[in-house]
Write a protein that binds this DNA or RNA. Structure first.
Length: 313
DNA sequence: ACCTACCTGTTT
DNA sequence: AAACAGGTAGGT
């Protein structure tokens, strides 16, 4: 589920409601979700902020709200994880695995709850050594696409060591660039006009420029829409996102392209379903034989290249 | 660089 | 009944 825009939306929605509050009771209902952590070790710690790195959320914890950070609570939501606030008067929501009671001097206690249908998500409590800015686990993550320092040159540099990968696979590799998943990789490639199966080695500098711009634009717009809700995603207030209404290719296979009306294609790439517009994102290696023309009713259908022998209709 | 596993729910 | 789903770790 949650990719960078969803995680960021959760962060922004939770921030004003959890900062300065102290953790009271901790209930780890499902073993293994709160990894290697005695839940009592969280009690008494105060949240001084929430940060995001790629698709990870990091809660800064300390003995007081303004003292040094002594621990990080690191969360990854994987496919169906949710992090929401819940009044203590309400019944336990389905698939709740961890509950943190948040205390405040003047406000009612609330639960910060972690729900996860598929139980892929994980939460870690990590000691913060003096001066540590981030949990060491995050050291391998690639650059943040919304960092001002991110640009075409950075992207090219990151991809350089993976020349044989498809550009789609490269965008999904969290060590190359942090935060993109299947939705925003496909949407970024559409906006950049790049065929997803293009090899990294063949990308030109102007294509890196287009791609870097596309990534930052798509992510910023998705955050402005509070993320994409396909099924499970909600922010800290349990509100759905709206970016699903603006998707150009993800989940749009067989529908007309919003830009050129040709039908969106679908295939399997890097083990993931991949959608693209065959006209806006042309394959430069496609054996064509003819001059570039508008596809009226041509063979570029919403079909995997691997199934081309099937030939129906 | 690819596969499979991890889970449950929904769709075909 | 089988395929598929926003993600990643781990093995080959």
């Amino acid at each position: 589920m949650p990719e960078l825009p969803e995680v960021e939306s959760i962060r922004l929605s939770l921030l004003p409601r959890v900062t300065g509050r102290t953790i009271g009771t901790v209930l780890a209902d499902t073993p293994g979700v709160l990894v290697d952590t005695d839940s009592s070790s969280l009690s008494g710690l105060t949240i001084s902020g929430i940060r995001r790195r790629g698709k990870y959320l990091v809660f800064d914890l300390g003995q007081s709200g303004d003292g040094p950070v002594t621990a990080f609570l690191m969360v990854h939501l994987r496919m169906t994880g949710r992090l929401t606030l819940q009044p203590q008067s309400q019944p336990v929501r389905p698939h709740t695995h961890v509950r943190l009671e948040l205390l405040s001097g003047c406000l009612e206690p609330v639960w910060l709850i972690f729900q996860d249908t598929r139980r892929f998500g994980r939460i870690w409590l990590i000691p913060a050594p003096d001066g540590a800015q981030w949990p060491g686990h995050l050291a391998r993550l690639g650059p943040e696409p919304l960092d001002p320092a991110f640009n075409a040159q950075v992207l090219k540099q990151q991809m350089a060591r993976h020349a044989r990968l498809s550009v789609k696979a490269a965008l999904l590799d969290q060590t190359i660039i942090a935060g993109l998943g299947n939705i925003y990789a496909d949407e970024s490639l559409f906006r950049a006009g790049l065929y997803p199966a293009r090899k990294v080695a063949g990308l030109q500098i102007n294509e890196y420029t287009r791609l870097a711009h596309a990534i930052t634009q798509v992510l910023a717009e998705a955050i402005a829409c509070c993320g994409t809700t396909l099924r499970d995603y909600v922010d800290g207030w349990s509100r759905e996102g709206q970016f699903q209404n603006f998707l150009n290719v993800y989940g749009q296979a067989g529908k007309p392209c919003r830009r050129c009306t040709s039908l969106i294609s679908k295939g399997k790439l890097a083990g993931r379903t991949t959608s693209w517009c065959p006209v806006c994102q042309p394959d430069p290696d496609a054996y064509d034989g003819t001059v570039q023309e508008q596809p009226s009713s041509v063979s570029v259908q919403a079909q995997s290249p691997a199934n081309s022998h099937q030939g129906r209709g």
